[in-house]
Design a binder for these strands. Structure first.
Length: 292
DNA sequence: ACCCAGGAAATTC
DNA sequence: GAATTTCATGGG
């Protein structure tokens, strides 16, 4: 019954979109995607759910809203020349269905987590945004991380035509003083953010290099930054540089490893360990009784 | 008042 | 070198 109402609303929206010539990109035959799971699973911090099930947010300086009707993904307010960008952002060229099957064969609990979190995809975010987001994440909770990131963008990001804000460029932050960051209420992380911005801006740290070099080398590159340890480096590599072999071990994952996967190590999860990690992380966070 | 949050640096032993 | 403490801030 609700399927009928949904299709009515969807049809009406298409008509109004045409009448008002709304800029919109659509991607057909999109599988293995759940926007809520993907955009609200703690890998990104700039999307907000709207009452109609769509999400609005900013990525790479583009403010859009996205919705999924069946297997049709729409990106509203996106121009045709952004097709490659959004296809890449949502990682639409990777076959998550077969990866999920492959991972599920490794361990029965992983199979259960993968089934539960089947709509998660690893986004290809901007590396500097991912770096800053996960610096902010340390000893912090997801709700407050979002608040600090939001204030960071509102204070120092470029204003976009619709009033939203881009994520600040490293040069912009690097030109400030640490005291200028006090409105963020980021606490001890402010000087870490400053060090990251300065080292990226002046080339001391080159995130792009981390796309191709050996994993340990990529980690070491990011860990030149004060406030970036193994875990923040792993998250930056996974969510900002799409190194999907990364397996970040935060407090949740450490508990999950001891209680659900005793005797296993990150390397046991193979080339797609990062995807397994997100399945497990989301599964545990939604079912905290499993690891406590 | 106390504890915890997608940790890492600083200090101590 | 390994274990413990400290670092801001906000919510439960």
């Amino acid at each position: 019954m609700s399927a009928f109402i949904l299709s009515q609303k969807s049809a009406l929206r298409k008509i109004t979109d045409v009448i008002f010539l709304k800029k919109m990109l659509t991607f057909n035959n999109v599988r293995d995607l759940d926007l809520s799971q993907t955009l609200d699973c703690g890998q990104c911090f700039r999307w907000t759910a709207l009452p109609d099930g769509s999400f609005s947010g900013v990525a790479f300086g583009k403010s859009v809203s996205v919705r999924l009707d069946g297997t049709v993904l729409s990106v509203e307010n996106a121009a045709e020349n952004e097709r490659r960008l959004w296809r890449s952002y949502f990682d639409l060229d990777l076959d998550y269905g077969s990866i999920r099957a492959e991972l599920s064969a490794l361990h029965p609990v992983l199979a259960e987590a993968a089934r539960y979190a089947a709509g998660i995809r690893i986004l290809r975010q901007d590396p500097f945004e991912a770096l800053c987001s996960f610096i902010i994440s340390q000893n912090n909770n997801i709700k407050r991380i979002k608040g600090i990131v939001q204030r960071l963008c509102a204070c120092f990001g470029d204003r976009l035509p619709d009033g939203a804000f881009a994520f600040p460029r490293p040069e912009t932050i690097a030109a400030l003083s640490t005291d200028d960051l006090s409105p963020l209420r980021a606490g001890f992380r402010a000087r870490y953010l400053m060090d990251a911005a300065r080292k990226v801006a002046d080339g001391t740290v080159n995130p792009e290099k981390c796309r191709v070099c050996d994993y340990d080398e990529a980690r070491a590159e990011l860990m030149k930054i004060t406030g970036v340890g193994v875990k923040v480096a792993d998250c930056t590599l996974l969510f900002g540089l799409h190194r999907i072999e990364a397996f970040p071990l935060d407090i949740w994952m450490k508990r999950a490893m001891t209680t659900l996967f005793p005797g296993m190590i990150p390397a046991d999860f193979g080339a797609y360990a990062g995807i397994a990690q997100q399945y497990i992380f989301h599964y545990c966070r939604m079912n905290p009784n499993l690891v406590r």
